[in-house]
């Protein structure tokens, strides 16, 4: 092991890790928004909205994230969408994870006991009031863990944007392989940084889960 090499490249990797974090956070925001809309669409009364929600979730879950990124970044210009790598990465990852998160959200909403809805309705709450005051507070707690799992998957999946030349952690590692040809040292540093980020997110999810646990 060439530790001095690892030390030398470390600052570059930290900078690259910040890009990974940036992409993950932006994609997470986009993903949560898309997921909320999709979950609402799938549970709505309108058949058209339900179809739109179902098709979105099914297409994005049924095909590889890598292909989705390629269609957007390489295929986009053919249909008039010209995106920088970074923007394409955020949008691609966000739409992909949004489909998974939609199922996490819907699963939690469905899991809240039917009796809860019925009880609220018999008191005279409207559909919307029931959702806001009774169902969502209970479902929110049930969502923490699955959405946390999705977020960890997003963080690790963000490595895929290296294939559309976003200069993040995995891309930086590849570039240093080209110049040093020391895969264990270089990938070791990258792996270490990923693990710090992944287990930090996992820890936050644990804490949130505990904090909102119904005792």
């Amino acid at each position: 092991m060439d530790f001095s090499l690892m030390q030398r490249v470390f600052p570059f990797f930290v900078e690259a890790a910040l890009v990974t974090i940036e992409i993950t956070v932006l994609a997470l925001i986009l993903g949560l928004a898309a997921a909320s809309l999709a979950a609402a669409a799938k549970m709505s009364k309108s058949a058209i909205l339900r179809t739109i929600g179902t098709v979105y979730v099914s297409l994005f879950r049924g095909t590889p994230c890598l292909i989705q990124l390629f269609v957007l970044y390489f295929g986009g210009p053919q249909i008039g969408i010209n995106l920088e790598p970074f923007a394409a990465g955020v949008i691609g990852l966000g739409l992909n994870i949004g489909a998974y998160m939609a199922e996490s959200i819907r699963g939690a909403l469905v899991a809240v006991d039917r009796g809860q809805t019925e009880a609220a309705r018999t008191i005279g709450f409207s559909r919307f009031q029931t959702l806001r005051k009774v169902v969502l507070p209970q479902a929110a707690r049930l969502m923490i863990r699955p959405l946390g799992v999705n977020t960890v998957a997003l963080l690790k999946g963000s490595a895929l944007v290296s294939t559309i030349s976003v200069v993040e952690l995995t891309y930086t590692a590849q570039r240093f392989i080209g110049s040093t040809y020391k895969p264990f040292e270089i990938f070791g540093v990258a792996a270490l940084l990923y693990m710090i980020m992944v287990y930090a997110v996992a820890r936050v999810v644990d804490l949130l889960d505990k904090r909102f646990a119904i005792v």
């Binding site: 895929l160 895969p183 990938f187």
Partner: peptide, 22 residues
Amino acid sequence: MWVFMGTPLLLQLFLIYFGLVQ
């Protein structure tokens, strides 16, 4: 297991492919 669960598949593939060659 801990390392595999904490890092991207892409990175693991690079490590196996290029690492073994090294």
